[in-house]
Simulated scan of single mutants.
Amino acid sequence: MGLYIEARIRADLDDLWARTQEPSRHQRWDLRFTEIDFLPRTTDEPQHFRYATRVLPGLTIAGTGISAGEKERPDGTRTSALRFSSPHPLSLLAEGSGYWRYIPDGDGVRFLTGYDYRPRWGAFGALADRLVLRPLMGWATAWSFDRLRLWLEYGITPERARRNWLLELLTRTLILAATGAGLWTQSVLPAFGPLAVPMAFCWPLFLTVAFFATLFATLFASPLPCTPAARRCLREAPTRARAPRLLRTLETPR
């Protein structure tokens, strides 16, 4: 699989399963989807579903998928697999497949995913996917996993977690902008008094150092515990990850 994301969540396995398998709960924490709906089915066939993602105001890209799950496995783990496709001409993502694994681990669960997809639009699509979409999808998946973790571990709802993230992002941006504004306005330093000349030399240097120090802190400082962050998730498989056999039983929806 092309993308791998893993989070360790201190939660009951049944609770984690419910919040990832029920569409009304899944769409609340997963940044990649705006809407997920199960389609009618008979009891002896895999579950078909419809998904939609609002890319821009007035522009929603939809697709269909098929999924199946194994809730009871001999080793105590659980697995779900899916295949999906989007006929929308503006969807760079044409079709793909993936899986979720739920591995009990002490007082928590290792919740991980592996998935890959085929981009459309030929060579241009392949380049756009490599430079933009694939890194964005990896980040969005990891960020969403951490938002799910906050929901299960601390009761921070997905909606509140998003507000926390936006507020922290705004705060960091304002701090950086204020520091940059100070550097830009350095020329207004009063040019009189015995310290005018030495301060006129030192002040720009001080502001430049302060700006880059603030920039470093803004970009790399640890997020608040109540704010979801993609960096908290594992982005590479510790061992070679293999798709479950269950995935082979599913056909790509058309």
Rank of each mutant, 00 (worst) to 15 (best):
W17H: 01
A18W: 15
A18Q: 14
Q21S: 15
R25H: 12
Q27D: 06
R28M: 11
R32I: 03
I36N: 07
R41L: 08
P46A: 07
R54P: 01
V55C: 03
L56D: 01
L59D: 03
A62I: 03
I66G: 02
A68Y: 12
E70Q: 12
P74Q: 07
R78C: 06
A81W: 00
A81Y: 03
L82N: 12
L82Q: 15
L90C: 06
L90D: 08
S91A: 08
L92V: 08
L93G: 04
L93R: 10
A94I: 06
G96R: 01
Y99N: 11
W100E: 10
I103C: 10
I103S: 12
D105W: 12
G106W: 04
G108F: 01
V109R: 00
V109K: 03
L112I: 08
D116M: 05
R118C: 06
R120E: 04
G122Y: 03
L131D: 02
L133I: 09
R134M: 07
M137C: 09
A140R: 09
T141Y: 07
F145A: 02
L148H: 03
Y154G: 15
G155I: 05
I156F: 00
P158D: 01
A161L: 05
N164F: 05
T171C: 14
L176Q: 01
A178K: 02
A178W: 02
A181N: 03
T185N: 12
S187E: 13
P190K: 06
G193T: 05
L195R: 10
V197I: 15
A200I: 00
L205T: 09
F206Y: 13
A213C: 08
L215A: 14
T218V: 02
F220I: 09
A221Y: 05
S222C: 11
P223C: 02
L224K: 09
P225I: 00
C226F: 15
A229W: 15
L234R: 12
R235K: 13
R235I: 09
P238V: 01
P238E: 00
R240D: 11
R240M: 11
A243Q: 03
L250C: 04
P253F: 05
